[in-house]
Design a protein around this nucleic acid. Structure first.
Lengths: 238, 238
DNA sequence: ACAAAAGTGTTACACGTACACCCATGG
DNA sequence: CCATGGGTGTACGTGTAACACTTTTGT
């Protein structure tokens, strides 16, 4: 069939911003880039879009290559298109954001990529515009998580209220009143209390909870209010 | 310089979803596509990304070609990448959403494109995946507008509270209590009452207001509550 | 017995909703 | 004078923030 004539064709990359939580700290997964330019520099996991796949598929393929993960919560964030963002060749990059439970996939991280988890407030310099991507993703996630229960994607099957609190405090790099926080969390109806306790972090032990999956799936759009004063969220995510 | 080898290069299109308000009805601007395939069918305004421009620039260029408009509120929405979305050739499309005041730019609409405003609930069939794009944009705008004062972009310098109400009712295709609505609108601090009245729609006349621009610019991120029960917003925009 | 973390309850205030009437004017 | 659209006020309920003490248990 006839093609569009006189137009520029260019590379389309997919970069994955992979957030994780290990029960204590909010982290970002980075790799050491395996090819020039900037070989060995820290980078998001990325790759090029292939002829017969859509961006979602490409993002999942790329995430799978690095982590062995499949069926991960992942969402398109934004396309980055500065003509000089990649010095080698004109490339636009579509950034995806993934949320994973670090413990769950510890094993599966391919050592060949030298992937490493960094606390989100201690990131090394990144190649190209990846730092900008991460900042934007952080802001967007803060915005989303203030309104919707997305952060459960970062938790294991069983988790405690202190875990959940640490997760939110990690993302917002601040502290919340635990009394108000747990009341809100419980009143969301998304948590099911288990009999078991986690004795790992205290002598008394904290009850495990699991996610009420049906309500969660119906209700990703339900508005939460775990976060006091969402008015102060970054403007960038409107 | 050396290029990345063995990768696919492809076309990147930009499609503009242009919402407008004329004081009464919420509308979408469509054109009749000027080239094959699907020539003469209704379509969003689109074009291809050029070698030396970023997507924002391309979107503005394309919008300018159609409407003569510059400095319009426009935002990247999402990249669409189904490998078969354009039957001619593999193309990914990045959709942009623009908000404009119809009256203001009535003159500037280039007749050569046969551009036409359609009420958002009476759209004709569109080419490719454009209907999906519009649906997504509508949902996203509903979501944003429920939380942030973006809709002022659609209003002229001077507008009345009944105008503002009609705007919101048009977007949400429903009705709001005018008493609560105007109290909320006024308490946002974003409106400045003028002495002048609009006698166009009633004998008594409705006061004009203008936007408090400084507060507006600081405060695009401020949370509004013009919309009762934002819990019922579409899930797609999380 | 004490240190360390888990868990729980009350009060005051702000905000949102529901709801009904008067006002101004042109014809 | 009356029809039409513009404008305003209150009462109630809900939800949020601020705040401090008791409980459990391993050492």
């Amino acid at each position: 069939m006839i093609k569009y004539s006189g137009q520029t064709r260019l590379l389309v990359a997919v970069d994955c911003i992979i957030f994780g939580f290990d029960g204590e700290t909010f982290k970002l997964l980075l790799i050491q880039r395996g090819f020039a330019p900037e070989k060995k520099k820290w980078s998001l996991m990325g790759g090029f879009l292939k002829t017969d796949e859509c961006l979602d598929t490409a993002a999942n393929r790329i995430l799978h290559q690095l982590t062995g993960l499949e069926n991960v919560f992942m969402d398109q964030m934004k396309a980055f298109s500065n003509p000089r963002r990649d010095p080698v060749e004109r490339t636009i990059a579509v950034a995806y954001v993934a949320l994973i439970d670090i413990q769950k996939y510890k094993q599966q991280l391919s050592p060949e990529f030298h992937a490493q988890w960094f606390p989100i407030n201690e990131l090394p310099p990144l190649i190209f515009d990846h730092t900008e991507m991460v900042e934007m993703a952080k802001n967007k996630l803060r915005y989303q998580a203030a309104l919707h229960p997305v952060l459960f994607e970062l938790l294991p099957e069983k988790f405690t209220l202190p875990h959940l609190l640490a997760l939110y405090e990690g993302l917002y790099e601040t502290e919340f009143d635990k009394r108000n926080f747990s009341r809100k969390a419980l009143s969301s109806g998304l948590l099911i209390k288990l009999d078991e306790k986690d004795k790992g972090n205290s002598k008394r032990g904290a009850f495990f909870y699991k996610l009420h999956k049906e309500k969660y799936k119906e209700g990703l759009q339900t508005f939460l209010n775990f976060i006091p004063k969402p008015e102060n969220l970054p403007q960038s995510q409107i």
